[in-house]
Write a protein that binds this DNA or RNA. Structure first.
Lengths: 219, 219
DNA sequence: CAGCATCCGCTTTGATACTG
DNA sequence: CAGTATCAAAGCGGATGCTG
C-alpha cells in the first residue's frame, strides 16, 4: 500500500505487486484460472482471510485482476487476472527459476499443493524427442493427482489423471518427487527417498534437461 | 523475515527477497556494482538507515550479497552481489519490463536517479543498424549525466559523458526524456514537454523498437 | 457455505537522533 | 562513513463473528 515514490520501473511494479501475498495471489490465479474466494484461500495456505480480501480489492483497483459474477448455474463471484495481470507471468517465471534450487533444502512443515509443481515442471522440462508419440506422467503427491504430458514438443502440467494409463507414475513425498522430475535426483536416489516409480522410467529421461544433477534432494 | 512456509519455488524466492526494499537493493547493486553503504543510501532515496543495515545483513546471511573490505587506498567496506545474487537480474528485468508502462503516469514528487534509466534503455532499445558506425546519446536528467551507446549490435548505458561529442543530447525532465528514448513519445511531443534535443535525431530512431508509440508520456 | 469485516496483540517499518 | 538506538505508526497474523 505504501509507495516507494521512486521514478523507476522496478519500484513502480513493486508498488503494485510488492505487498506481502500479492504475487502469490497472482501465482494462484495463473495456475488455476478464474477462481472463487475459497479456492484461492485453499491454494494460499497461511494467508489470513482479511488479508486475502484486502489484497483482492487492491489488485482489483490496480487493474491486475477483476471480479466477475459467474452465470446463474454457478452463482458465485470469480476472480480472474486481467490481460495486464497475465503479463505478470514473466515475473512469476523468474521467481520460480531462481527459487527452484532452494527447493532442495528441507521442507518439513511447509504447506504444499500439488499444482505448485506445474511451474517447475513446465519451466525446467522439455521434450527431447518431439517426433515420438506423446507421453504422460502421473504424479501422486500432495492434495490432488497431477498429469504432466507432452503435446507436440511442449510439456504441460494439469490437475487430474490421464484418460488412458500413464506411461509412468510417480508417488511419494513432494520433495523427492520434484527432485526426480526435474533431474536433481536419479531414479535410484528418489526410490531411496520414498518415491514409488511405476512404469517406463525412460520417459523421465526424455523430458529432463541435459544439465548435471544437483546435490541430493532426498529429504 | 517471515517465511510463507510454502513448498513452492516462487514463495521460496520471496522468502529471500520479498521483504520491502530487498529487491531494490539488488537493483542498485546490479546497477552500480560493488558499492559503499552511503552510495546505496544515495541510490535508494526514502529508505531508513536502520532498514538498509537490516536488509544488508539479511541478504548477506541468505547468500545474495557479500561484504568485502576494500584494499588500503580506499579502506572501506563494499557490498557486492554474489554469483547467486547476480542471477536475480532476470527477476529485476521482469519487474522493469512490466513496470515501464507505469512510467507514463505522472510522477511529481517521485525521487529520481539518472542510473535508473539504464534498465529501460537496455531492455527496450536495440541497434537496428548494427553494421553502421556506433552512436552515442548523452542524457542529461536527474543527478548525473548518462551515456547510451551502441557497441556491435548491443545497446549499453553507463554513467558519465562520452569522450567525444555525442551524436545527440537529450536534456530535460526525466519523464519525457525516458518517453522519447524508449519510443513512447515523438521528438515533437518530447520538445513540447520540455526536452531539449540537440544533434542528430535519427540515432533515436535507429535504437528504438518497431512498436507503436504509447499514449502521451508528456507529463 | 462463500465472502468477507472486526478486533487485538505482535512484528515490521519509517523518521529522526545519535555515535565510533 | 557506516552504521545503532529509539519510538511511533502502520502492517500483518490469528481468531472470531456476521451476512446473504
Amino acid at each position: 500500500v505504501r509507495s516507494y515514490r521512486q521514478y523507476c520501473a522496478a519500484a513502480k511494479t513493486l508498488d503494485v505487486v510488492g505487498d506481502r501475498w500479492s504475487l502469490l495471489i497472482v501465482r494462484e490465479l495463473l495456475l488455476r484460472g478464474p477462481s472463487r474466494y475459497s479456492d484461492l484461500q485453499a491454494g494460499l495456505p497461511g494467508i489470513a482471510t482479511n488479508l486475502l480480501a484486502d489484497r483482492l480489492r487492491e489488485l482489483e483497483t490496480k487493474g491486475v485482476l477483476e471480479r466477475v459474477e459467474a452465470p446463474p448455474p454457478i452463482a458465485t463471484t470469480l476472480f480472474q487476472l486481467t490481460e495486464r495481470g497475465r503479463e505478470l507471468e514473466d515475473v512469476i517465471d523468474a521467481l520460480i527459476r531462481w527459487g527452484v534450487p532452494l527447493m532442495a533444502e528441507p521442507s518439513h512443515n511447509d504447506h504444499f499443493r500439488s499444482r505448485w509443481i506445474s511451474y517447475p515442471a513446465e519451466l525446467f522440462l522439455s521434450d527431447n524427442a518431439p517426433g515420438e508419440p506423446p507421453v504422460a506422467i502421473e504424479v501422486r503427491t500432495g492434495d490432488e493427482p497431477m498429469t504432466i504430458e507432452t503435446s507436440d514438443g511442449a510439456v504441460h502440467a494439469r490437475p487430474g489423471r490421464t484418460a488412458e494409463t500413464p506411461d509412468v507414475v510417480l508417488a511419494g513425498p513432494a520433495q523427492p518427487v520434484l527432485g526426480l522430475l526435474i533431474g536433481y535426483l536419479t531414479v535410484a536416489e528418489a526410490r531411496t527417498a520414498g518415491v514409488e516409480v511405476t512404469g517406463d522410467e525412460r520417459v523421465l529421461r526424455r523430458l529432463r534437461p541435459l544439465r548435471p544433477p544437483h546435490p541430493a534432494m532426498a529429504r
